[in-house]
Design a protein around this nucleic acid. Structure first.
Lengths: 307, 307
DNA sequence: AGGATGTAGTCATACGTATCACTAAACGCC
DNA sequence: GGCGTTTAGTGATACGTATGACTACATCCT
C-alpha cells in the first residue's frame, strides 16, 4: 500500500476509495509505529494551517482569557485551532509573530497599540476605533458609559469625578468623551491600569474642597485603587463615595463592598470576532459588530450623603 | 540571481558567499515585492520550528500570564517563539495541539490534569509531582506552606483551619500534608478555586464552636472568599480572624486588608522551565528544579485576640 | 461479447525553503 | 603559464503531505 493510500485513510477521505479492511490495517500500522503526521508538511501542501493567531496586549488579565474562550469555541466548531501571542508595543518581539507561525489569519486586540507588520494577512481587530478601515468587533463602550452616567445621576449625584486610564486608545478616549457629555463631571485624573497607581491618582482627586461624591473609573482595577484611596481618607464606600468600574473582572466581586460596574461580554466578543474572521477567510466581508455592555449594580454605589 | 542566493541573504548566511551589493539588491527587491518567507516551508525543510508550545489549564488566571512572560523572555533570547494553548481535561480539544501545531517541544502545566497524547515530544512539566518521570520544574510548595504555618504559630495561633482547593493535584495535596504535620490544625474545608464557592466553604468552617483563629487558604482567590465569609459573620480581619493566601496574585493587594500570602516566583518558574526545555532540545537532560516561595506579610494576619 | 460503470489503489507532482555539491571567473604565486 | 585559492554564485535535491490523473481488475447491462 502506498503513501497516497495512507494519506487518504488518515485524512478521513477514504470513503469509497479504500477498502474498509485496508483502512483498518493502515490505522493499525500507524498506531503501532507511533506515526504522527507532520503538520509542517501538511501546512505547506495545503497552503493553509487551519490555525488563527490571537494577539493580545497581555496575558496578565483574565479579560483576555474570556476573549480566548469565546474565540476558541467558535474556531473549534469549524475545525480551527487558536494560538495566543501576547504583544505590547514596548515588548514587541524582533519579528512579528506572523513571520514565525504559520497561520491563516489574525485576531488582534488594538489595546496593545499598533498592530503592525501584518499586512496581507486576513485580520479582524477587537475593540478598534470604528474609524479604522480594518473589520472590527467592538464593545459599545459609549453605551456602557452612558449607563453608568445615568445610574449615578438618577441616584442624585451632582459632582462626579472621572478616574481615567492613562492609555490613548479608542476604548478609553470614548469613555472620557461620553462622560463629559452625559454627566456633571467636575474633575478628572489619569492613572496607569494598576492598583497602586490608581490609588495615588484617586487620592489627588479626593483631596480637594469640592470633592466628588462619585468616582467613575475606566477599569475595575483602577476602581480597586480608588477603594484604597477612600479607605486611606476614612471615606465610607458607598455612603461617602460611590465608585464604579468597567469590565466586571474577578476583582469586582472580590472587593468589599462589591463593585458596581459595566459587564462586558468578553467571551461573546471573542466568539463574534472569530466568526467574523472565519467569514473573512471564506472571502466574505462581515459587517462590523458592536456589543452592548450591561450595568451590574452592586454595593459600591448609593445616593450621595447630602441627597 | 537564483532562489538559493535569495535564501542565503534572507537567512543572514550571506557572509562571504554573496557580494554585499547583491545582498542589498535582494533585500530591496524582497521589500518592494512584499515577500514574506513561508514558515510552513521553512519548518518542513529544517525539521524544526524554533517554536515551543505552552500548555496551561486556563487563561483566566493572571498567574499563567506571568509564567508565560518568563518563558517567553528566555525563549526570545535563544531565538525561539512561544505559543500558548489552554487545555483542561473537560474542555480538551478533539486532537491534541501537538498534532496541529508544528512545534519543537512542550512546556505543560500539570494543573490541567493529564497531559496526554504528547509522547515522543520533548516535554517539561510545570508544577508536577516530583515522583513523575517527566523532567519537572516546581515550586517548593511544601517549604512555602511551612513558612505560613510557622508565621501563624509564632503569632500565637493554636487553632488553625485549612480552606483547601478541591483539586486533586500534587501542588494542593502537598499543602494539606504539610499543614497537617506542621501546625495545630483543627478543621479543614474544601472549595473550588472560586470566590463564591470559597465563601460558602469558609462559612461552614467559621460557624462552629471551636472556631479557628486563623484560616490558611490554598489560593488567593479562596482567601478572597474567606474575607467575604468573615465579613458576613461580623468578624474583623485580622483581629478576630487571620487569613493567609497562596500565590500573591493581583487580588492579594486589592483586598482590604491586604493579604498575607506566599509569593510564588511565577515568572522565574516560566523562565527556568523554558531553560530546561531548551536544554532538552539540545539533547541534554536538565536537573529538576524547585523554586522557593516567599512569605509576604501584609495586614491580614495578627496575633489571635485571646493571646 | 463488449462497452460502461464501479472499486481499490498507485503514481507523479507540487507546495517553498535550506543546503550540499558544483562551476566559473578572477587572482596570486613561484 | 599552470596550479591552488578565493569570491560569487548556480543547480539539484529533499523535507512529508495531498491530490488529480491514471491503471487494473471486476461487475453489470443489453
Amino acid at each position: 500500500m502506498s503513501q497516497s493510500t495512507v494519506s487518504l485513510v488518515l485524512a478521513g477521505k477514504a470513503e469509497g476509495r479504500v477498502k474498509p479492511e485496508t483502512g483498518q490495517a493502515v490505522r493499525e500500522a500507524a498506531r503501532r509505529l507511533g506515526y504522527r503526521p507532520n503538520p509542517a508538511a501538511r501546512n505547506l501542501r495545503l497552503g493553509r494551517t487551519r490555525t488563527v493567531l490571537l494577539v493580545v496586549p497581555t496575558l496578565a488579565s483574565p479579560f483576555f482569557g474570556a476573549v480566548y474562550t469565546g474565540a476558541a469555541r467558535v474556531a473549534g466548531e469549524r475545525g480551527f485551532g487558536v494560538v495566543v501571542h501576547p504583544w505590547t508595543d514596548d515588548a514587541a518581539p524582533a519579528r512579528s509573530p506572523v513571520d514565525i507561525e504559520a497561520i491563516d489569519g489574525v485576531l488582534a486586540s488594538s489595546l496593545g497599540g499598533g498592530v503592525t507588520g501584518m499586512d496581507d494577512v486576513p485580520l479582524v481587530v477587537l475593540d478598534n476605533d470604528p474609524a479604522d478601515p480594518a473589520p472590527a468587533v467592538n464593545f459599545d463602550v459609549a453605551g456602557g458609559m452612558r449607563l453608568v452616567a445615568r445610574h449615578l445621576t438618577e441616584l442624585g449625584h451632582r459632582r462626579i469625578g472621572h478616574l481615567a486610564a492613562a492609555v490613548d486608545t479608542w476604548t478609553f478616549r470614548v469613555r472620557g468623551e461620553v462622560l463629559a457629555d452625559a454627566g456633571p463631571l467636575v474633575c478628572r485624573g489619569h492613572s496607569a491600569i494598576d492598583v497602586a497607581a490608581a490609588r495615588t491618582a484617586a487620592l489627588t482627586l479626593l483631596d480637594r474642597p469640592d470633592r466628588p461624591s462619585a468616582l467613575v473609573c475606566d477599569d475595575d482595577l483602577i476602581a480597586a485603587g480608588a477603594y484604597k484611596a477612600a479607605r486611606a481618607l476614612g471615606l465610607d464606600v458607598p455612603a461617602d463615595l460611590s465608585i464604579t468600574g468597567f469590565d466586571d473582572i474577578l476583582v469586582a466581586t472580590a472587593l468589599e463592598p462589591e463593585l458596581t460596574t459595566i459587564r462586558l461580554p468578553a467571551e461573546e466578543l471573542g466568539a463574534r470576532a472569530m466568526t467574523a474572521l472565519l467569514e473573512r477567510l471564506n472571502g466574505q466581508t462581515p459587517p462590523d459588530v458592536s456589543l452592548p455592555g450591561e450595568l451590574i449594580v452592586r454595593d459600591s454605589t448609593a445616593p450621595p450623603r447630602e441627597a
